[in-house]
Design a protein around this nucleic acid. Structure first.
Lengths: 197, 197, 197, 197
DNA sequence: CATGAATGAGTTTTCATTCAT
DNA sequence: TATGAATGAAAACTCATTCAT
């Protein structure tokens, strides 16, 4: 359940990591087009040209970030899924697993959400996206077969719950709710009641 | 309940309207920083300079759009709120009122969501934002006093339900769900169960 | 025979002409890759951005220059060709026509020669190139049929004479020969003896 | 007459030779300013930094190439000059000596021609240039004294013949003529007739 | 000797904005 | 009111050169 156990292998170079970290922050703060490469370089403490040693372009940089963190969160959820536990427990595990990630990596989660749909994402980044979604749909459909969840379309329940989670998360990011385990723990029963049969 | 009854007074000029419409589309497609003023001019069928007759700057343009549509959706919700109906009915009315807006004005709603937090929004735009939120908190707190809703923080319930709605909406925009009244009608009981006591 | 009678229609704008003139000079002085767009702007007396009003890119600029002047010189030669005169007279006319162009437009001719083979030339520019060459080959072959010229391959005679002309021209440009009508008039009988039967 | 007998002393290091060879090719293909140092390094199979162990700068590299090959071709012509043969034979020897060089070292000759006039050539490179020219002028003037050549300025005849040779060579490089001994042998009588009295 | 990461000035190009017409 | 040519600052990106290893 500890996010660090599912950490992606760090890039070989410290500079590359500094660039990735700086870019992540700035992309969240100002968006992709609103972030200049020199501003990333400055925050990373490297020269502008150095960024092009590690990333072919600004697009390559945002895609590297997206693929990396989508992979991390995806593995985190899948790994922490208690396959043999009862559905109620599974639901709580997934919800609180996401909560853990949100609390430990709020910028990373915000980044993933802001760039969800962006035209500059490449196929690999989109694939990472879809893998997580497919996993969710599978689980929901299984539970529906057992009549444990509402008989609405699986995608609807999934998007609903995911949206609810992100709604709470975004409010927490904006300071309208505390970004704590308790906040998500309070929201979890709401989510469960929303989808249960 | 008809969205057009709450339509904002149109700008005097047809050109200004064309500019606003073109800008809205492009801001949704490419974001604020990804949209150039000349591209707005081209889509609006006017010269680039003309935009500056109606709007002081690109920022003024995005703020005009934001304030206008945040006002429209806010008034739509408040106007269609059945103040004397039972809570269950009120909830449905608000949810389906938002659904109506989402279906009739998907680009406008997407625009509002994408620019929610943006640094280039001015105080007036942010105020429109807050007015809707305050209204919601008030209603929720009233209902909680009557023990009709879960005793969680009012903001939490509000953000949860709003997030769930937007989750469904975004999935519909992306084509993963049909953008229809039925989709939202199916999600509405989920949302109610999530927040009811 | 006056080069100005075959002048290409000038671009509508004075600025565009200033840009073309400045670019021509700099491309001759420093080559395509050695010439920066700001340096062209400075010599033309316009802002750097203005260049992109008239030309889509630096490549488009060099191609516009190439097509224009290749067309001018091609038309100049073809127009001044005395189709009914005896061959000896035709040869002199072509040679001295080129000499006239070289003297009146040394920079333009140097530009054309320097960029002859360049990878950044587009199809239109290359087509202008070939049209002149085809015309020459046709004339040579006709003369060979009449046994007035040496029986070597037509292309060989053409490239030989053209090379000789350019050799004299380049020496004149470099100051090793005077860039005058007399210089070319002295070289003309040499060229004729080289190719005559 | 064998070009290899007049080969310049090779640079001590194999790497330096690889760098020179790679640079020569790239300078011919893309020009000096169009060729990046990293691209030279890549084609030479060395690291970019290694180039700076052998050459102080990109300019030093192009000058080393120019001086080397201008020296080689100069010595080749002078060495193969049959000082006691009749003029007709001397002319043929020089022409076909150049032809031999052109066929054996087309890239090297093209390189020398493309960079003839370039601003980044240093004095030594220019001196090598002039030595060959002076030799030619001397020979021509001697022959003119004997009334064996036309009484035009010596430089004119020299530039004419050199230009003609290069015209044929460039056409051969571009594939418009075969790059063979026969091509140059066919052109030789033309050149002789051009300059003879 | 050799490497290649790192630099930062310089390149081409875009674009928000102004202003003469 | 409307235009679009013109601007120049800033963007993404390249590259000659240096230097620690």
């Amino acid at each position: 359940m500890n996010i660090h156990s599912t950490m992606v292998a760090p890039h070989d170079s410290e500079k590359a990591e500094a660039i990735l970290a700086a870019a992540l922050e700035l992309f969240v703060e100002r968006g992709f087009h609103g972030t200049s490469v020199p501003s990333v370089a400055e925050r990373a403490g490297v020269a502008a040209g150095t960024i092009y040693h590690y990333f072919a372009s600004k697009e390559a940089l945002v895609n590297a970030l997206y693929s990396r963190w989508k992979g991390v969160i995806g593995r985190h959820i899948v790994d922490s899924f208690p396959a043999t536990a009862p559905l109620r427990e599974q639901f709580r595990a997934v919800w609180m697993g996401m909560a853990e990630f949100a609390i430990d990596h709020p910028k990373e989660l915000a980044f993933l959400e802001f760039h969800h749909h962006a035209s500059y994402l490449d196929d690999e980044a989109r694939a990472a996206e879809n893998r997580v979604f497919e996993f969710g749909v599978g689980v929901v459909q299984l539970a529906q077969t057992a009549q444990s969840l509402k008989p609405a379309p699986a995608a609807l329940l999934l998007e609903f719950a995911n949206g609810a989670f992100l709604g709470v998360f975004r409010a927490a990011l904006a300071g309208r709710l505390p970004l704590t385990r308790e906040t998500f723990a309070l929201a979890e029963p709401c989510a469960w009641e929303a989808v249960r049969a």
